[in-house]
């Protein structure tokens, strides 16, 4: 990749190109894997500089999500991630221009890469001592309270190695992340099926609830 291409990429990121340049540059991006990777890296760097990258931030699984989504019952799959993204951004500009000046802190759970992080070792002593639920309004916002608890007497909590701790964290993150995805995919489209099942449940109260009938 040439120096000039890097510069163009950088300008594109900062929305400094005019429409014709932008289109040409986008075409390049869509076709060029190296450029796309660079684009992703630039964004990651920028996020890091703005302190937006969280500790234990998961790897970028967006490509995997897009692939999975392609097999899902979806209305449209982004053919070219970047082009789609910029197109979407353009639609959203009107909404983004709404005059609400707000700049507070903290992150959200709307997309798949944003979710609660697992705090490890940075919890106030009190929280560790009483692993019970902490109400919403802490003076210091807590992350997720991780309490590795053994269901297996052979592996008490204290014997967890650093490696196991790390594995636990990534395991918890993976399930949390997947649950967020499942929530997005489960919408309300299956309400009819839900009602059907409830009818069944009512008519046959004695039967323990088993997995959904096929």
């Amino acid at each position: 990749m040439t120096e000039r291409q890097y510069e163009t990429l950088s300008a594109l990121m900062d929305s400094e190109l005019d429409t014709a340049q932008e289109r040409a540059s986008l075409d390049n991006l869509v076709r060029d894997d190296a450029l796309r990777q660079k684009w992703h890296n630039y964004h990651l760097i920028r996020a890091a500089m703005r302190n937006e990258v969280k500790q234990d931030m998961p790897l970028d699984i967006s490509a995997a999500v897009a692939a999975q989504v392609a097999n899902e019952p979806i209305p449209f799959a982004p053919k070219h991630g970047l082009a789609r993204k910029l197109a979407l951004k353009k639609w959203l500009k009107p909404a983004a221009n709404m005059a609400i000046a707000a700049s507070v802190a903290l992150v959200t759970v709307l997309g798949v890469t944003q979710y609660q992080r697992i705090d490890d070792g940075s919890l106030p002593e009190q929280a560790v001592a009483s692993p019970g639920f902490q109400p919403t309004l802490q003076t210091v916002p807590l992350g997720v309270i991780g309490n590795p608890v053994s269901y297996n007497a052979a592996q008490p909590q204290t014997s967890l190695t650093a490696q196991q701790q790390a594995r636990l964290q990534s395991q918890v993150q993976a399930f949390m992340l997947d649950h967020q995805l499942q929530l997005q995919w489960s919408g309300a489209l299956n309400e009819a099926a839900l009602k059907e099942q409830q009818k069944q449940e009512e008519s046959d109260v004695k039967e323990p609830n088993t997995s959904s009938p096929q």
Binding site: L44, A47, E52, I61, V69, P75, A77, G111
Partner: peptide
């Protein structure tokens, strides 16, 4: 920070 996608 990630590729957009849509679901039904």
């Amino acid at each position: 920070t990630s590729t957009p996608y849509a679901v039904a």
